[in-house]
Simulated scan of single mutants.
Amino acid sequence: MKKTLRNIFIVSALSPLLIQCASQDEVQRLQYQLHVVNKKLEDMKSTTVGDIQKRQAASSNQLDQLDREILNLKGQLEETNHLNRRLKEQNKELETNISVVAKEEAARREEALLKIQDEQRLKEERIAELNAKLKAQQESLQAIQQARVRDAERRAQDARLKADAARAKALAASKSVGTSSRGIIHISAENFKQVFATTSANTPATVVPVTAKSVKAEPQTQIQQTTSADSKPAPAPTASSSQSPLAKAEQLFNNKDYRNAYSAFESIATTNPTGDVGISAGYMMGECLFEQKEYDKAILQYQKIISQNGTHAKAASATYRQAMAFEQLADNETARMIYKKILNHYGSSPEAAKAKEKLGNM
């Protein structure tokens, strides 16, 4: 198109020269060509203007559509900004709530930790107190044992002195019978002699018929019968003498003679501290104390069984009875801990079922 315009411009500029130089035919031919060119220019102008207008209309439509899309995007952007502001406000509110909850939770944990520490301290003090009582009880037990040993030694010495005195008295009596004329015995074969054997101050003398042969055969025995006025006859054996020491102690316990039963069990436990009989006797010592409502001492006695014989069958029973003693002392928290200990350490024992039932009722 640019070339055509340039050609027309050149032809227009040179047309005067061509008119002067060219002939009439050439002029007509040139006019015809100019007419054709003008027509083409008009056609091109109308076509170009139409295309331009169409393009302008299309561009206007596109601009309108772009404006609408821009407006739509602006609305979405404003809505997004509004949502962002709301989310920011909600985030701030959540952060505030989380901070408050975290602080409250931290305060509760701190309070629970302090409570646990206080309970632990109280329990440690309780354990220290029980250990002190156990130590005092052991020292008292040792002192009692030493006192009993000394008492036994004193009794043995007194018995030896009495035996020596009795022997000396018997020897003096035999000498007096041999040397004194008033002590000579004259017995015929046909006559009898009555010897009075004195057993005690409150018991009447026993009349014993003695022949001459018996006097000759056993003079020393007769003299001892007449001179041993201070000696006591041996007690007759009873049916209980065949029982074992543990059975006798259990019989005392069944008869509710708890003090004597405790002494009997203690003697057995001291004689055999590591055997089954000694462990059972030590456990029964705790039972005697429990029945006498001496719960503190019973707890200490049960603790000996638990600490020294933790794998023995009596350890579970001792632990259970120890918890019951704490219940009697109104220390339910410690009792609850011991019941849980039974479930953890002695879960297959019969005491575990009892401990579970106790926990359910506490």
Rank of each mutant, 00 (worst) to 15 (best):
D230M: 10
P235L: 04
S174T: 01
A166L: 03
T221F: 06
P204D: 01
S181T: 07
P209F: 04
P235M: 03
T227P: 01
T221E: 09
S214T: 11
A217D: 15
Q243R: 11
H186F: 05
S174V: 00
P233N: 06
P209C: 04
S176T: 07
S200H: 09
Q194I: 15
A247L: 12
N202R: 05
V215P: 00
L171E: 11
S180N: 10
K169S: 04
T179W: 03
I187K: 07
S240T: 09
T238S: 11
T203S: 09
E218L: 13
I185D: 00
K248I: 06
A189G: 10
A247W: 05
A197G: 11
S176G: 04
E190S: 04
Q225Y: 10
I185M: 03
P237R: 06
K169F: 01
I185H: 02
I185L: 05
P235E: 09
V210L: 05
I223Q: 13
P204F: 00
V207N: 04
T221R: 09
Q225C: 09
L171T: 07
R167N: 05
H186Q: 12
V177S: 02
T221S: 12
L171S: 11
V208A: 02
H186G: 03
V195L: 13
A172C: 05
S180V: 01
S176I: 04
S228G: 11
K216P: 03
P237W: 02
Q225I: 08
F253N: 05
I184H: 14
S188I: 01
G178T: 04
V208P: 00
K175W: 06
N254D: 12
T206A: 12
A217P: 02
A212P: 00
S242P: 01
Q222G: 06
E190C: 00
A170G: 07
V195S: 03
S214N: 10
K175Y: 10
P235C: 01
A172R: 04
S231E: 14
E190V: 02
I185F: 03
P233R: 04
I185R: 01
L171Y: 06
A172E: 10
L246E: 08
V210N: 01
K175E: 13
Q220R: 13
A234G: 09
A168W: 00
A217Q: 13
Q194M: 15
P209S: 07
N191A: 14
A197T: 13
V207S: 06
F196Y: 15
K175N: 14
V208W: 00
Q251G: 06
L246C: 03
Q224G: 10
P237V: 08
T179N: 08
A229V: 15
K232R: 13
F192A: 09
K213L: 08
A212I: 05
S231W: 07
T198G: 08
S228P: 02
A249R: 00
L246Y: 10
Q194D: 15
T221N: 11
K169A: 03
E190P: 00
Q224M: 12
V215W: 12
R167G: 01
V208G: 00
P237M: 05
E250Q: 15
K169E: 02
